[in-house]
């Protein structure tokens, strides 16, 4: 089955991104396809390469990037929401790309299920 994922909150303040990450990992382990993970609202902040959490905590952005690399995930950051919050091409961690909201709607159309995580 094809899943699309929407992440509405940034890392750390909310569990949303962690929950989405755990859901995606479990879905991949079960052999499902992740069509796309789309980051909207403050969710775009997951994509910053400047985050440096304390060493004994998880690095949410790096976890996403690693999963994207090992499973060829498409991690898409909304351009308009990103611009508003200072997330542009130069601030992106590896594994993320910036594109338009149309990518979310396309994911909603193409995927069998769209699962949203937020506040």
């Amino acid at each position: 089955m094809k899943f699309a994922i929407l992440v509405n909150e940034g890392p750390y303040n909310h569990q949303a991104s962690d929950s989405a990450y755990q859901f995606v990992k479990a879905a991949l382990e079960k052999g499902h396809e992740i069509f796309r993970v789309f980051f909207y609202y403050d969710g775009v902040l997951n994509a910053t390469k400047y985050a440096e959490p304390p060493q004994d905590d998880r690095n949410v952005g790096k976890n996403w990037a690693a999963l994207a690399e090992s499973h060829k995930l498409d991690l898409v950051v909304c351009v308009a929401a990103g611009l508003r919050r200072g997330i542009v091409d130069d601030s992106l961690a590896p594994g993320f790309r910036i594109s338009g909201l149309g990518q979310l709607i396309e994911a909603g159309i193409q995927a069998d299920r769209l699962v949203a995580f937020g506040d």
Binding site: F3, A27, D112, R113, L114, V115, A116, F117
Partner: peptide, 13 residues
Amino acid sequence: FVDLAAESRVVNA
């Protein structure tokens, strides 16, 4: 959780 989402037609958060 993934199974529940797959068994349902829509997921509404």
